[in-house]
Amino acid sequence: MSLMDSEALFKNFEGMEEVVADIAAQYFIGYPKLLEAINSSINNNDSKGLERSAHTLKGMVSNFRAEEPRLVAYELESLGHNENFSGAPELLTKLKGLLNTLDAEIREAVKKVEAA
């Protein structure tokens, strides 16, 4: 099953599908840096940094209507907000895996847009 709700995504961008390719390009640049920032915040016990980076990443994946990674990012954001790091490394590992899959799904979606 897909992480991304393509139907909801393309319904939202109806009539301006090319925008999906534009924001995907920004996503591909942005998300590895944010994963790195989350990792660094966890290692340095920087709760504010964890909250901020996870929040931004949550916003980015939600644009692709990818609920599962959004929820994991939200859990990390909440840990940061509550200055609690327990379970954070495991959540980050889970998030990395999900975003790896999402990356491929987004690239597929962009291909469809460009082919249309």
Binding site: M16, V19, D22, I23, Q26, I29, G30, T56
Partner: peptide
């Protein structure tokens, strides 16, 4: 917006 992606999204929508 401090997120480049969100800026790009809104720029695209409203320039159209």
């Amino acid at each position: 917006d401090d997120s480049a992606m969100e800026r790009k999204l809104l720029e695209n929508i409203f320039s159209k």
